[in-house]
Amino acid sequence: DWREIAKLAEEALKKQQPVTVNGQTFNDPNEIKKLLETAQKAI
C-alpha cells in the first residue's frame, strides 16, 4: 500500500535511517526521497 510506504519513507527521512520496502532496503536519503515522491504520486 503506497500510503504505508509514504509513511515509512517519511519516518526514515526524519530519523535518518534506512527503510525496507517489499524486501528492498533503501539507505540513501536521495533514494528514500525518490521513493516517497513515487508513493505520493501513486496515492
Rank of each mutant, 00 (worst) to 15 (best):
N27E: 08
D1E: 08
E10I: 13
E37Y: 07
I5S: 01
E4N: 08
W2E: 02
T38A: 08
E37G: 04
L36E: 02
Q17G: 10
R3A: 12
Q40V: 13
L36F: 07
A9L: 15
E4L: 14
Q17F: 11
G23V: 01
V21T: 03
L8C: 05
I5F: 04
P18V: 06
K7H: 10
K15M: 12
L8W: 08
W2A: 04
P29E: 10
A6S: 05
K7R: 15
I32S: 00
F26A: 00
V19P: 01
T20N: 07
A39Q: 02
F26H: 04
P18H: 08
E11R: 07
K34L: 13
D28Y: 15
K14S: 10
K41T: 11
E37W: 06
L36P: 01
E10Y: 11
V21G: 01
R3N: 12
K7G: 06
V21M: 06
P18S: 08
D1W: 15
K41N: 13
P29I: 12
W2N: 03
E37L: 12
K14H: 13
I43V: 10
Q17K: 10
N30A: 14
V21D: 00
E37N: 06
V19Y: 04
D28H: 09
Q24S: 08
A42K: 09
E11C: 11
E4W: 11
N22H: 09
A39E: 01
V19H: 01
W2V: 03
K14D: 08
P29S: 07
A9D: 00
I43H: 04
A42D: 03
L13F: 04
D28A: 05
Q16A: 12
K15H: 14
N30W: 15
E4Y: 11
N22V: 04
Q40D: 04
V21W: 10
A9I: 13
L8R: 09
E10N: 07
L35C: 03
T38V: 13
A12L: 02
N30D: 11
T25H: 08
P29V: 12
V21A: 05
W2K: 02
R3Q: 13
N30S: 13
T38L: 15
L35E: 01
T38H: 12
L13I: 10
A12K: 01
L36C: 02
K15R: 13
K15Q: 12
I32W: 03
R3F: 15
G23I: 00
I43E: 05
L36Y: 07
I32P: 00
T20I: 13
L13T: 02
A12Q: 02
K33T: 09
D1F: 15
N27C: 04
T20E: 07
G23D: 05
T38Y: 09
P18N: 06
P29D: 04
T20L: 07
F26L: 09
K14V: 13
K7Y: 13
D28K: 07
I32A: 01
V19L: 15
V19D: 01
E31D: 14
P29H: 09
I43R: 03
L13C: 02
T25R: 06
E37S: 06
P18R: 06
E31Y: 07
N22T: 03
A6W: 12
K34R: 10
T38F: 15
T20P: 01
L36W: 12
P29K: 09
L13K: 01
A12M: 03
K34I: 12
N22D: 05
K7E: 07
K15P: 01
G23E: 03
A12S: 05
A9R: 00
T20C: 07
A9V: 10
T20F: 10
Q24M: 15
K33I: 13
N22A: 08
P18Q: 07
K33S: 08
E11N: 08
K33L: 14
I5T: 04
K41A: 14
N27I: 12
N27P: 03
L8H: 05
W2S: 03
A6G: 04
A39D: 02
F26M: 06
P18T: 08
W2I: 03
D1G: 14
A9C: 11
P29N: 06
K41M: 11
K7P: 00
V21K: 02
R3E: 13
K34V: 12
E4F: 09
P29Q: 10
G23P: 01
Q24P: 00
A12D: 00
D28N: 10
R3P: 12
N27A: 06
Q17N: 07
I32T: 02
N27V: 15
L35T: 01
E4C: 07
T20K: 08
E31K: 05
N30V: 14
Q16K: 13
V19M: 15
R3G: 12
P18D: 06
